[in-house]
Amino acid sequence: MGTTAFEIHDMTVAYHRRPVLWDIDLQIPEGKLVGIVGPNGAGKTTLIKAALGLVPLASGKVEIYGQSYNQQRQIVGYVPQRESVDWDFPVTVRDVVLMGTYGQLGWFRRPGRVEREIADRCLQQVDMAPLANRQIRQLSGGQQQRVFLARALAQAARLYFLDEPFAGVDAATETAIVELLHTLRSTGKTVLVVHHDLQTVREYFDYVILLNMRLIACGPVESTFTQENLQKTYGGRLTLLDEAAEAMRIRESQ
């Protein structure tokens, strides 16, 4: 196995003391397309947010190419869920993509010609160049998702986290996203994708993380995405974990 791009070591994440992810341990090798799969409330988005330092860890650590997120943020790209932002915001498509370059610029420096060229190139990659000057309100769901992907490309990262990029997009956009994922992989990037559609997991990804509050399995799709593991992920509620979490919450609130 080659370089490890992303590693989680014994990580627990809790909201208000109630654990939502228990003792996660996993390693992702560089250059893989990774599906993060699990039922609603399994902690898929939380896993990403914890990796990005957006929610505090109760314990454990996250490493990106062997170092903490704070040291490596320049090489990490992030696409949040489309609904997490206000599409009425007065910015154009190009403005949003330019935001992808802000991280490399650091504090105070303004994007210039170079950054605008990067933004335009990224827009071309997702077939959105003709709409560069549109206000983002006027876009369809699929187009909004493409803008977010272009922004992630502008981040010029080595490791990407995409939160449900396939949610509510048209078939053409879905195909475009898959193509883009393949392009990223062919240039050695690692991409983790929160994914809902079990039918397409085999087709889209090399690697899969099966999650339901705890890690069920993590590995290559052929050996990991099995009926048995899916049964463990989706079948039956994890009553013991749930009960323990509930007990901790109640104890805390007394």
């Binding site: 990005l52 990490v76 997490s84 932002v85 915001f89």
Partner: peptide, 22 residues
């Protein structure tokens, strides 16, 4: 003027801004 892009990105997409270090 100083914080133009930081104010812009953190108003539009606070979690992206945070992951970028703003």
């Amino acid at each position: 003027v100083l914080f133009w892009k930081e104010l812009k990105v953190s108003s539009f997409d606070p979690s992206l801004a945070s992951t970028m270090g703003f």
